[in-house]
């Protein structure tokens, strides 16, 4: 039978894991794609993610509305984005360094104010059941899908289409590829970057609220374990293409489910390496897919990390 096959169990678990775990990666990497397309890198999204997780949880707890929590998490994220965007426009201020500083600052603030919310239980986001057609419990569970995941897919398409075909997409891309060219076209470079970083921060905040309000669904200090930073890595991996961001996030989520899934069918030897699978996989793909000779396809020309 299908259910009896160990391989099927693992594949199903990875499929379910991809859907459950990928959403924060998806949101943060979409936000970072937009920011990087405008020519800046924001490593501070890890701090934004953690702060988003905390603030979303806190608001959901106080108001009883998890969706309001998601919104506030996004707004907090855009505040961090605004801070990053504003500071980086000052001469001689390095965007990578500011990002690292904001990562520390955002995490610190989240832990500081988050102490009061480790204990309480906040209302969580609902899910939509797409598994009504099957009577396999595991598959049915895998198809319990959070609306944010669907929203993320839509967003990936919108961003992909928008960057390519709309006027603001062109503006963002021009700013990211060559600031002098953008200036010549009368584009306010700093403002475009500020807005792109703010929108990127909004997405990262929403991604964080998914962690605390849906999966795993509570606020603790160890909640993120570097997911915001990994999402920034996924952007390079996804070649600044929002659709690839979606695939990369799915792949990363699936790889993360590999360790527990293998143990559930009795393979535990070397489980540390299976747990590190997402990182090993990302590194290998980055090594295989990059080249020192030509700059990466899709890479914004102004981006400090690709120079």
């Amino acid at each position: 039978m299908f259910e009896d096959s160990a391989l099927a169990t693992v594949l199903l678990a990875m499929f379910a894991g991809a859907i459950r775990v990928s959403t924060p990666f998806l949101f943060v990497s979409l936000g970072e794609t937009l920011t990087e397309k405008s020519g800046r890198i924001n490593l501070g999204l890890e701090g934004t993610l953690v702060f988003g997780a905390m603030s979303g949880y806190a608001i959901s707890y106080h108001t009883g509305s998890p969706w309001l929590g998601v919104l506030v998490a996004g707004l907090c994220g855009s505040c961090f984005g605004a801070l990053h965007g504003y500071l980086c426009k000052l001469p001689k201020v390095n965007d990578i360094a500011i990002g690292i500083a904001l990562m520390l600052f955002g995490t610190g603030l989240a832990f500081f104010f988050g102490k009061a919310y480790i204990q309480p239980q906040a209302p969580r986001l609902p899910s939509i059941s797409f598994g009504f057609w099957t009577d396999m419990p595991a598959l049915r569970q895998a198809l319990e899908i959070n609306p944010l995941f669907l929203l993320g897919i839509v967003l990936a398409f919108v961003l992909w289409w928008g960057l390519k075909n709309t006027r603001w997409g062109l503006t963002v891309r021009t700013t990211g590829d060559s600031a002098p060219a953008a200036l010549a076209l009368g584009i306010n470079v700093n403002q475009v970057r500020l807005l792109s970083t703010m929108v990127g921060g909004f997405f990262a905040g929403v991604g964080g609220s998914f962690l605390s309000l849906y999966y795993p669904g509570s606020w603790t200090e160890g909640l993120s374990s570097g997911q915001g930073l990994m999402a920034v890595a996924l952007v390079i991996f996804a070649r600044w293409n929002p659709l690839y961001c979606f695939l990369a996030a799915l792949l990363f989520g699936a790889a993360g489910a590999l360790g527990p899934a293998l143990q559930s069918i009795g393979i535990s030897r070397g489980y540390h390496f299976f747990n590190a699978a997402p990182y090993i996989m990302t590194l290998l793909i980055m090594i295989a897919s990059t080249s020192p000779k030509r700059s990466l396809k899709g890479a914004p020309g102004e981006l400090s990390i690709t120079k």
Partner: peptide, 22 residues
């Protein structure tokens, strides 16, 4: 299922789900 860390919420949730699925 061993998670390998004393505190790792996402992996704990994954492990719990894997056990339920099993």
């Amino acid at each position: 299922i061993f998670t390998g860390e004393w505190s790792m919420p996402v992996r704990e949730a994954e492990a719990a789900n894997a056990l339920v699925d099993a």
